[in-house]
Design a protein around this nucleic acid. Structure first.
Lengths: 183, 183
DNA sequence: ACCTGAACACCGTTCAAGT
DNA sequence: ACCTGAACACCGTTCAAGT
């Protein structure tokens, strides 16, 4: 890649992170191009779809989910408490930008999506946590990680779109966790 | 209301039902105006926001949810089965048009929304069903109907936006139901 | 009192002309 | 090989002019 192209690429991504933080992941691409001092055509050359741009933006922070998953796997606190902390971290991660939950969750399991590989990072981290408890036999075995990502993602989408607070989210997660626990 | 205004109002609503059915609730208002043979200004005069139009459109079918709630309250089948049927009916109703689940669920509990009264119809029907089982003590008492509407709505939003089939939706509802049942 | 439709604003997308 | 920005398309919204 030519030096000027690389520079533009990086500047667009850096600006997109800013704009997405301020206005959410459905912010006008127009504004990103303007603030990055590039023509709209340049943005399109680098990122043919909004999802391609999102993919580049989240690259810098999706992997941080692994830390929370590590904590969940290592913790010796009660299951319910560990899962609540883990799912809260999951929701916080995908809700970092407004509009994020819907983007992540609707792409989840769809291999044609530009952000599929990022969704897989989230799903596999979740798989790792679930596996630990599946092994212990404390959670049901008939629900796979994709489905759990979708249910938790659904909670995140609703919280995001309705502007709910942390307490409301935690309460909903509690219900889902009880549904996952063996009785 | 003048006769011609009434006629236009009705024609716009009838056309909106058609267009929403074909293209979902985020369909261009432009197309509705054109197909209804009215100017865009006429549509705006009758319905200042998209939600006002949606409110008029769903008026003809939200109340049908009562039938499913009646069945759920009267049924003597096992709780799990009754709730699964009821939640499935709930999801089917709000998913009648693409984009519907997000519209209903994000307006749920927001008294400033133009479709608030319609959301209340859904929530109160849900309340009625939940009350029956709360009375029997088979479901937890610490989760209110609004919260249940949001969780089930979250499942519906994900299913709608990811294009999931009936089986995937039913499976997710099963997890939520287990979370609501007392152990 | 209500309707029309031209006009504007906004934003995504393309592409001919440049470097 | 890459960038620019004018140009187009699309759609929401307003409002002056009409009936």
């Amino acid at each position: 890649m030519r030096a000027d192209a690389q520079k533009n690429h990086d500047k667009i991504v850096a600006t997109a992170i800013e704009v997405f933080t301020e206005k959410g992941m459905d912010a006008p691409l127009d504004e990103i191009a303007t603030r990055a001092d590039v023509g709209p055509g340049t943005l399109y050359r680098h990122f043919p779809t909004r999802e391609d741009l999102i993919d580049a933006v989240i690259k810098s922070w999706v992997l941080q989910i692994e830390t929370a998953a590590d904590d969940a796997v290592a913790s010796d606190a009660p299951v319910r408490e560990v899962l609540l902390r883990w799912f809260s971290a999951y929701v916080a991660r995908i809700s970092r930008n407004k509009g994020g939950p819907a983007k992540f969750t609707s792409a989840m399991g769809n291999s044609h999506s530009p952000i599929f590989s990022k969704c897989e990072v989230l799903r596999l981290a979740n798989e790792r946590v679930l596996d630990r408890f599946r092994h212990d036999g404390v959670i049901r075995a008939d629900v796979d990680s994709l489905e759990v990502c979708r249910i938790i993602g659904g909670v995140a989408v609703v919280a995001d779109q309705a502007g709910l607070d942390e307490a409301a989210t935690v309460s909903m997660l509690g219900v889902v966790i009880d549904g996952l626990l063996r009785t």
